[in-house]
Amino acid sequence: MKTPRAMIASFDTPGGLLHAAEEVRDKGYTRFDCHSSFPIHGMDDAMGLKRSPLGFIVGGMAVLGAVVGMGLQGWVTTVDYPLIFSGKPLWSWQAYIIITFAMLVLFGAFGTVLGMLFLNRLPRWHHPLFTSDRFASVTDDGFFISIEADDPKFDPEQTAAFLASIGGKDIETIEGEAR
């Protein structure tokens, strides 16, 4: 069964999209997105987006990597297979720093990529927005705002009227499989 999933409106210019985003934000919508083929300066503020929590994921992973790196070498050289190298103590933490650092960077990089995918809800193979023919121009010269149907403020008629009032054109309801 198909149900409304989102409503899109197109805008002519990046500036128009930016101002429309501010209007949508101020109206109290929370589940909406702006689409353009290039990044628009100031869009984060206009949409009222908060800072991405990605840094904390990366930081956590980096610390984990350092602990794993140091722990692995420490365990091998002191417990599992103790060997004396060049007269230095078994627990020679200085020698482990390089691999610890490398593991920190490696885990941090994993955290960055995987965390980014997770926060962007990727991978996903399809989105109802792609059923709209008009929306395809977003990769070329189109600027769109989409408001999700599960936004608490979403109302088929009022939202359409609101999008028209802030300069949106070609307002279209996107239907998709019910979740």
Partner: peptide, 12 residues
């Protein structure tokens, strides 16, 4: 600073 220390520590 770490590199300076590390190399000297290692070579001993």
């Amino acid at each position: 600073a770490g590199s300076q220390y590390f190399l000297i520590w290692y070579a001993n």
